[in-house]
């Protein structure tokens, strides 16, 4: 379920390698099952339909930006501005709804704003040559400022059934966020494993200069990935605003780390060159299961932070130790 860069492509086609790649996501299933067993024993409600639905919906919502971030990280880059995009998208959409526009139009405008933030990131990174980590750090600050200035520090409160449907509606009994995540995940899987674009993304992640010299449209691919992350951040913003029925400059604070965390725990290497779609999905489920479990056990939030931090460190240590050339780990990132 992971894909490799072209130079590793030949090997990747071999069935044995494909099997080993499938096993790569397996280590995630181990803590997931363990935690599930512990929670089933420790609380009597963990396995209830309501609770599992909560976990899956929450995981699905964070997985959508996570999947876009997977592309970005596979390309060897980061987008830190996604939390601010969440805030701005929700603020714009809700303000348009308050202004009397149809909810559908408002949501579309919100997504366009998300795409615009992505385009801005892409252009700053490619045309101005600014390191992505810092460029998106700057846009994180700027977009948050725009969101606060746009709302003037006041919430845009809505009561829209169309917007509500996005987070709370059901299609054939399946919660909408899960449907959206499934569609996003299939699209991401297809893109990464079956399209030229996906191969290009991984090629750029493996060696950007080599990709450039072999004639790939590097800047265009990078910009496109940032736009995808922007749109995914926009969808995230719509989902949050749908749940809370408001847009505000206060929403989405620190969300960028949530999105990156699920990708990293999912096993996509920060060195770039590989993307694990299934891993990101599992990572999101794992994180949300832990959070849900600690909530069920009435655990103070301090311990939630510690456990997610430790999980990150453990996940990465395992990842690093499995690599054959340990010194390689120190070269990048």
């Amino acid at each position: 379920m992971t894909t490799a860069a072209p130079e590793r492509g030949a090997r990747a086609a071999a069935p044995r390698a494909r099997l080993s790649r499938a096993i790569e996501s397996a280590p995630l299933a181990v803590p997931l099952v363990l935690i599930a067993v512990v929670l089933t024993v420790a609380t009597d409600r963990f396995l209830s339909v309501d609770n599992l639905t909560n976990v899956v919906v929450a995981a699905g919502i964070v997985a959508i930006p996570g999947l876009a971030m997977t592309l970005c990280i596979a390309m060897g880059e980061f987008d830190l501005s996604v939390g601010s995009t969440v805030s701005l998208t929700g603020a714009v959409t809700c303000t348009w709804i308050v202004g009397g526009h149809p909810a559908g139009v408002a949501m579309l405008v919100g997504l366009l704003v998300g795409a615009a933030v992505g385009l801005l990131n892409g252009l700053v990174v490619t045309k101005l040559g600014v390191t992505p980590f810092i460029a998106t750090l700057a846009t994180l600050v700027i977009v948050r400022g725009v969101s606060l200035a746009y709302t003037g520090g006041r919430d845009a409160i809505v009561s829209s059934s169309t917007l509500k449907f996005l987070a709370a509606g059901r299609v054939f009994g399946v919660p909408m966020p899960v449907v959206l995540t499934a569609v996003t995940a299939l699209a991401a899987w297809w893109m990464v494993n079956r399209t030229r674009f996906g191969r290009w993304v991984c090629a750029i992640g493996s060696n950007r200069e080599a990709a450039r010299m072999s004639g790939l449209p590097v800047d265009r691919v990078r910009t496109t990935v940032y736009v995808i992350v922007g749109v995914a951040g926009g969808i995230w913003g719509l989902l949050i605003s749908s749940q809370l029925q408001k847009g505000s400059g206060q929403l989405g604070l620190g969300f960028e780390l949530d999105a990156i965390t699920v990708v990293v725990i999912g096993g996509t290497s920060l060195l770039g060159g590989r993307a694990s779609v299934v891993g990101t999905l599992l990572g999101a489920v794992l994180i949300e299961t832990i959070r849900n479990g600690l909530n069920l056990l009435n655990t103070p939030p301090a311990y939630q932070r510690i456990s997610i931090g430790l999980l990150l460190v453990v996940a990465l240590t395992v990842q690093a130790m499995r690599r054959n050339a340990p010194a390689e780990a120190l070269d990048d990132v």
Binding site: L270, I306, L311, L312, T317, A329, V333
Partner: peptide, 23 residues
């Protein structure tokens, strides 16, 4: 010693240090 990439090791420890301070 553990050979975790610095970016991730320190991102994880950011949560851990803050968590300990919270506790």
């Amino acid at each position: 010693a553990m050979r975790v990439p610095p970016f991730v090791a320190t991102l994880g420890m950011l949560f851990v240090f803050r968590g300990v301070a919270y506790v």
